[in-house]
Structures are given as structure tokens and as C-alpha cells.
Design a protein around this nucleic acid. Sequence first.
DNA 1: TCCCTCCTTGTTTTT
DNA 2: CAAGGAGGGA
Length: 771
Amino acid sequence: MDDPFELSDTPSTPSARAAPGPAPVTAVRSPTYLDALNPTQRESVEATEGPVLILAGAGTGKTRVLTTRLAHILAQGKARPWQILAVTFTNKAAREMRERVAELAGAAVEGWWLGTFHAIGARILRVHAEAVGLKSGFTILDTDDQLRLIKQLLEARNVDPKRTPPRAALAIIQRWKDRGLTPDRISEAEGAEAMDGLALPLYHDYQARLATVNAADFGDLLLHGLTLFRSAPDVLARYQRQFRYILVDEYQDTNVAQYLWLRALAQGHHNICCVGDDDQSIYSWRGAEVGNILRFEHDFPGARVIRLEHNYRSSPHILAAASGLIAHNRSRLGKTLRTDRGAGDKVLVRGVWDGDDEARMVCQEAERLTGCGHRLSEMAILVRAGFQTRAFEERMITIGMPYRVIGGLRFYERQEIRDAIAYLRVVFQPGDDLAFERIVNMPKRGIGIASLRAIHTLARAESLPLTAAAERLIETDELKPAARRALARLLADLARWRDDVPRVPGPELTRRILDESGYTAMWQRDRSPEAPGRLENLKELVSALEDFDSIPGFLEHVSLVMENDENGMADKLTLMTLHAAKGLEFDTVFLPGWEEGLFPHQRALDEGGTSGLEEERRLAYVGLTRARQRAVISYAANRHVYGYWQNPMPSRFIGELPEDAVDTVVATGLAAGPAARRPQEASAEPLMEPETGNAVVTGGRSRRAARVIEGVPYRSIPRSAATGPFHPGQRVRHGTFGEGQVVAASGDVLEIAFDSVGTKRIVQSFVELVA
DNA sequence: TCCCTCCTTGTTTTT
DNA sequence: CAAGGAGGGA
């Protein structure tokens, strides 16, 4: 390698398949935890020395391999815990790994470096902050802060925010950071090109501003790490010596900065093991580089490549459908997933009239499955885009089907939570200008832009933090009396809260701050429908604080962890995007909206060309491989989108599914999807599903007569036999809405007056009698 | 300073 | 269609 911090060219040819390799050398009697593994999994665990790349297909037991490998290294005494570095992308993955290793090892492992790239980056940076121009107590910015900062900088340069949207500018800077590029390393040509040459100077401004406010954004946690390693070889050498074993999860999602960071650290012992699946790379738009998989063998000569190809999750039909689909991608390393499970259902492709019909169909099927003893918590609806959830939510609300939506705004991203945290930041970190700006007029206290500008001017002139400048300013008569009084009051409050810190426990102090600042009152006064929920969230925040020893400890936690931990135990159907579903699995997966323009998404096609299309296809692959037993794909002939009706074509992905693995059911009167077209032409009269009147078409091109799908699908099978018919007057209980009284019953739909949420119409299979 | 109305712009998202 | 931002008027 010529320059340890430069990227080599990506080798263009994927490696040949790994040879079986020599039999692993093992101890006389191998530990029992290895018995649970198949030969390749075991090989992956035992190949502890030297660089290893594990290509782990969907459902091949990746997490088991990873955790067993860690436990193995510890059990064999190859390293002490602090000599192990294990990086993941999400806190959830880190937590899961921690728990599962503890289970295998019989005790929690203390002192190892397990965490997200960002958490570990921050941990290292806290120690060496000075080396990159920060102080150890630096704040970590959230997206809101970043955007506000960019806006200010654009304003300072008199740039029209319409022609140069702050979001776009931030995105460019972030992509640079993803590539490990500090402002000084961006080529002249690229700098001149990005946003008419505006982005690069803006990037300079941005970094300078971050340094003055002693802050780092997420990208910096790695980028500064790289700078540190470059400028202080002795520091790097220390970490290289320390980390005897390095392990990386979801390797296909690493960006270049993360890759360089890893590669630098691995130069000590070369014991780096990366686990990933190029077919599940779905985050290139966020800077992830699948090329890192190809680079691995190039940069770590002699790297061992192990493929995990035995799938333990999905039925053969699902696996065949997924494999057949992904085979249409040109750029992939290639894996062949195998299973030895019994046949199972074919993947079902349903053509429906419109989005409402689709929601009805999906819910009806989910309901039918619950009637056969399947749990809602084992089903998921996976959508391409967030807005698609609405139709399903509406339907589930009307029939009273319990559900939960994953994603959307996470807890710590909500406005009220960010505001509350900003108050804490100002109290504990008086130099935190961004937090100060956020709360200075929230709730409205008459400190507008004019006053804020005055504070800014003074702060800049005297190079003071905003709080200090504000304190100076209220001594003068520069502000209008009203503003001056309001600001003085706020500063006095802040001072008092800071005084309280040693005496008052965190949760209590937080409650006091929210009340005395008028923040709670602001939402209590608010008449909008979301206000009560916001107050609820604030309470939740206060109780979350109880798990922390100190507020600063809590603040470090929230700046790195953005999750909402929900009570995941309840029996609810899960609704989320395909992206959010990666790493999860369900018995039944519904995949709606497989239409050209929506999936593959038009924008991915327009902006990404062939590689964009291939990433969409990988997303489809991820969706299908989430299913253990059943997958139902659907497309609508009419879709209401952005206010108008469109008549999309069924997704090309449907036509790419191997015919033998799918059954197709198309609503009467609709053109069949590509997979169904031919057999319909071949047979003179379309067969009808006896109960619904739907045309039934199976996948086989050569087959002349279509097979009616076993059983009678898509009719709800009420559970009245088990629960008995309901009568007005009875007390019933519902999973989401609690208890209530039956007002009326017609068919299997009940009208129920719930004690807490009012009257709703509920399908009877979702309620039970209260004894 | 605040509030209302008009206009634009619509993927995916962790840390 | 709906939400969020900008700009104008009170």
C-alpha cells in the first residue's frame, strides 16, 4: 500500500470463489458452543488469525457466527476484552451482540470496545480532542443543529436559500465526509463543480464554525479520527497494538471514511474480520461503498474469504424467488443460497385495483392468518416509501387491528425532546451556542431575531459564547426594555438551575427546568391534537433520565443514541420501510406497491441509472428474504399519489421472479402482471376463484390450466366458533384499545364503546370476552 | 414579533 | 393532497 490513508483503485474483478482451505486446527476437544455450527460457520469462527472476509447471505446465521467468534476468542484466551474492537452500525446491533456474547460466555464481558462506529469514534476522540482542534468536552450535533448552522453560514455569504437549499449543501458536505475528505483534500475540479464552487468554501466555513463552538457532527467523529491517525502516528500505533482482534458487522454498509479508519487500525495485528453481504447493500445514497468488499482482498493480501450460503430462515419457494430476482443484478460477487427446509407456500403475487383495495387485501389475509393461529407479531408490511403506510394504518384503525409503525421520527428527534435537551445542554454546557439559539425564544418570550442578532454581534466581536454575550448585553441599554427584561429573566433562570445542579437529582431538575422556563405550559396551552402526546413524551424523557447517574452522562448518550424503545412484546402487526426491515425476520411478509415508479422508485432510476436500479433490486431482495414462511407481493392498477391518479405498470421485479416459485392472483378486470400475462393468453377462459370472482393464474408458462390456490384464500375466517358470537351489552377487551362494551353487532363487525378511546368498529376476532 | 396565507415540493435514514 | 417554509400584513 503506497499511502496508508489513500484509497487504492477498486479492483474491477471479483475474486474467484474461495477454495475450501485447510482443515482448521482445533484443540483436542472442541468447545461445545462450536457444535451448534455448520462447517462453514465453524470455519468462520475458528479462522481468528489474519484478515477474513465473511460473505454472509441472508438468513445464514451471521449473528450467530459473529457472536460465537467473539466468545471463542475470549474463551481461547487469545485476547483480553479491551484488546477486542467490535463495530456495528446501530446501537441495536451492538446491544444484541453484547447480550448474545454474554449468553455464550456465561457472563457479561466488561471493558471491550463494542459499539457503533460513531460511539467508538467519539470515545477515541474525547481522549485526543486537542490534536484535531477541539476540546474534550465537545458537543455532538444533531441534524437540526447542522442545518441551522449551514443556514447561518449561507446567510452570512448572502446566498439565496432558494437557489442553494441548505439541505443540499449539507448533503454535499456529508458526502465528502463519508469519503474521508477534509476541506483541504478536495480536488480543485471537484470543489469548483459542487454547487457552482459554493460548497467547498462553505465546507471550510462550516468546519471553522464547528471548531469555534467546540462541536463535531457525526461525520467528524470518524473524519477527525482519520486526521488524528495521520498526524499522530504514535497514537495510531498505540491503538494498533491494543486491538488484537477487530470485527466489523454489516460491512457492505461502510463508507470510505469508515473503511480507512478500520484499515488504519488493523495495520497492527491484521486480525480483522468483516462480515457482510453485497446483495444487501441498500445504503449507497448515504455514502456506503460496496466497493469496500472488493478492496478488502486487495488491501489485505492473503485475506481469507468465506461464504455462508446455507439459509436457515426461508422456505425454498421464498429463497428461489429472492435468488432468481437478485440474479438479475450484474454487479455482485455471487452466492448461491441453499436450504434443506420443506417446500412451503409459493410467493403470492396479487394484482389489486387500488391502494385501498391493497390495504383491504393485506389486512384480510393477516386476519385470516390470525384465525389459523398465527400471531400478528409474526407479520410485517414492508413498504418502499413512508407515505405508503397511511393507507394501511387507516384500514387497520377501522377494523381495529393492532399495529405498530417502526421508523418515522424517533424519540430523540421529536421537537419537544430536542427542545428539552437543548435546555439541559445550555445549563450544563454554557458554551453551547446552538442549544442556546434553540431555546432562547422557546417558548416565545419576546426575544426575536433583532435581539438575537445583537447577541451574535457582541459574541463575535468579543469572541464569547452566546450566553456570555447575552449576560454582557443586558448590562447595556442596547436592547429594547421588553427584550432586555425577558433575556435577563432567562439568564437568571439558567443561573439558578446551574446552582441547583449539585443539590437536585437529574430528573427532578429537568422537570423544574421545563416547568419554570414555561416550556411545559407552552404545550399545555397548545390546542393542537399533538400537544398531549408531546407532554407525554416530555414525561417519558424525565423518566428516561432516571437510568442515568448524571445529566452529562445522559447527554452523551442521547447525542449518540437515537432510538425509541417500544414495548415490542405486544401482539401487533409491524409496518415499516424496507430499509428499516434489514436484519429482521417474520413468518409472513407483505410487500405492497410493487409498481414501476414506486418500486423501483422513479427517482432511483433517474438519479442512479443502472446502479440505482440494482440497489432497488437489492432492496426487493432484502424484503423477500425477511420472510420465513410466506411472502405476499402486491401491485395496484391505480395509485393515488401527490393528488392525482396514476396507472402504474406492475414492477419489472415481478416479471423477474422465477415462475415456479410464485402464484399470481389478479383481480378481475385488471391486466395481469408480467408473470401472469402469458398463461392467461394461453388458456381460453380465465379461471375464477369461486368465492371472490378473482381470476386465478399460476406462474407456469407452459401450464395450460391454472390451479386454484389451495383452500379458499382471502376470505376472512371469523373466530366466532372459538369465541362465540357477541351480543350488545357484553364487556370485551381489545389489544390496543382496552376494555369496552359492545353496542351493536352486525356480521363479524362489532361496534364497541371503549372506556378510554370512544366508540369504534372492530372485527370481532380482535376482541375477547371479559370474564 | 407573531400569525396567516401562499407556494413549493415531494425516497430510502443511522449516528 | 399535505406539510413545511417564506413572505407579507397586523
